[in-house]
Design a protein around this nucleic acid. Structure first.
Lengths: 169, 169
DNA sequence: CGTTAAATGCGAATGGGTCGCAAAAGCTCC
DNA sequence: GGAGCTTTTGCGACCCATTCGCATTTAACG
């Protein structure tokens, strides 16, 4: 393919075979673009949207195309290597992505300051189990998101006007 | 305004004052369009998207505009009269809406047959409480959605090919 | 009723995401 | 390690849900 890259970069042997295994199982090919995109996602700290991912990828190889990013995200989603988030549409309709390698958690989006908190409790695990048991539904993907006010913003809000008068209009 | 309507329709006095109260609290005006849209949403059984809502509204008054529907949905969301759902993007990126009058529940979207199940358990309530207690976050909106396979589709899937080979590519 | 700020209709614009196609690159098998 | 077949990529046009700016209309309050 078009990318003259040294295949070292920041991927070690172990990671590579893991990815290769995941990607090639079933017919998906391990292309330079896919390797690069997965690397970027794995190494990123925050929550990436498609446009940011494209921007970062273009820094390594400017020839990569938007469509490839979207197609790769779709693939990784199907393979369960990443999760797709909406983050309560705090920043419009775009989606965010995070690797599934980290431990499970859900997201709390502060409507005031825009901060995204990650959290988890054993009750979430229990809830998932109950859902399956009670409904017979096999959960493949689950997304829990809340919007509201973080602790800091709450403190500020208390000394300001009421929510109701701000909400209407 | 442009709509020559008898203000009776299917809204009774109690509902009307409830809406009037909710809408006018803080400056929002009780227009004929808003009353109509809220009525349609309240009386609808399934999950409405903006386009369906517009279609239904046009049946009552063809002059209502798309933008009004979107603006009203935005308003109702802010006033907490409706919840916005993504339903795991089973049908593209559009949003669905449901009145908050029904009791709380979350949604399970079957990737196979497209069915949307509604469910709830006391553990969900407990989870919300724990989130607030543990993080200090004040939850204003919460959305729990799962995607996977419903009981019926699971039975069928068992006698068919494996998930993995279907997912890759 | 008259006034005035808010809401509507309109159509153009935006923005995230998708598609069809020809060229290019992985994979497989020898 | 190259031929040959299949998947993937780049590309740009396209799609679809949603938003915007502005002139006109209307609800709400006096």
């Amino acid at each position: 393919m078009r990318m003259g890259r040294k295949s070292s970069e920041s991927m070690n042997g172990a990671n590579r075979s893991y990815l290769a295994q995941k990607l090639t199982k079933g017919g998906a090919r391990l292309t330079a673009q896919r390797k690069m995109l997965v690397e970027i996602i794995q190494n990123s700290t925050g929550h990436l949207d498609a446009a940011s991912l494209l921007r970062l990828a273009k820094r390594r190889d400017s020839r990569i195309h938007r469509a490839t990013v979207y197609r790769t995200l779709e693939l990784l989603k199907r393979l369960r290597l990443i999760d797709e988030l909406d983050l309560m549409h705090l920043e419009g309709e775009k989606h965010f992505y995070e690797p599934r390698t980290r431990s499970e958690h859900f997201h709390l989006a502060c409507f005031r300051c825009g901060k995204i908190l990650e959290h988890n409790t054993p009750t979430f695990e229990r809830l998932k189990k109950e859902i399956s048991e009670q409904t017979g539904f096999k959960i493949e993907v689950i997304r829990l998101e809340a919007g509201g006010q973080c602790e800091e913003c709450r403190a500020q809000a208390d000394s300001s006007q009421s929510d109701a008068s701000r909400a209407a209009r």
